[in-house]
Design a protein around this nucleic acid. Structure first.
Lengths: 114, 114
DNA sequence: ATTGTAATCAACATACCGGTTGATCAACTG
DNA sequence: CAGTTGATCAACCGGTATGTTGATTACAAT
């Protein structure tokens, strides 16, 4: 089981409920109850999802009386985007097979993935 | 586990072994044995990881005699990048106001759970 | 035909994930 | 104070993920 940052980030994103929660938070902070409302599951379940997001650093939480408002922190997404960008040539545009192969050859001598 | 495409893609990426395999494949096609060599785990385990990548559409496989060379197909990454791009403002650039606010929230953090 | 090689299949152990319900804690309200 | 609200904690359950070992398939080489 992965403990590295990137794995934790991707794992947190690999659930539609959590992604929907992030989308909601992109519009501003929200309480657990507000986040839970759209979903056909218990508040506790949503609270757990929130903990996953928090452990991944994607959400930070405050305290207002008995409410624990969550706020999106997108910074961990940067590492995810950076990793994905390395594969831009493989998912973007008009790359026919030959062109792709040429890029492969070129990248083999300069190897820089990490 | 989620069945939507984006979740499957993120889940496939949420493992360092699989990401390393993709990095290797970015340099050109490889057999299961070649992919397995760097890892301290059985060939069968790597074969399973490969199946995960294949189900996610990130790898396509051919057949040469008894070898089944794998090739990277980055197209599913496009959806991942597109999703992440929506959060660009949250991981990049001039977020002074937000960052200040986030630090405030963090400094209030009044619990120590696990 | 036998042997060797590449990879998968099958069964199994262990651990984690995502959900449930019930109890509890913390803070506001009357 | 008692009661309500917001959220977490704790225990539990079923399904799935990741790894193991051993058997098996498919093809090549001798």
């Amino acid at each position: 089981m992965p403990t590295d940052e990137l794995s934790t980030t991707f794992a947190a994103l690999a659930d539609p409920t959590r992604r929907a929660m992030l989308e909601r938070l992109a519009g501003g902070e929200a309480t657990v109850g507000e986040l839970a409302a759209p979903f056909p599951m218990s508040l506790q379940a949503v609270s757990k999802h929130l903990q996953v997001l928090e452990r991944a650093g994607l959400v930070v939480r405050g305290r207002e009386a008995q409410r624990r408002p969550s706020q999106l922190d997108g910074r961990p997404l940067k590492a995810a985007v950076d990793w994905l960008e390395e594969y831009r040539a493989f998912y973007e545009g008009r790359l026919d097979r030959l062109e792709r192969h040429l890029r492969e050859i070129q990248s083999q001598k300069g190897d820089s993935h990490a």
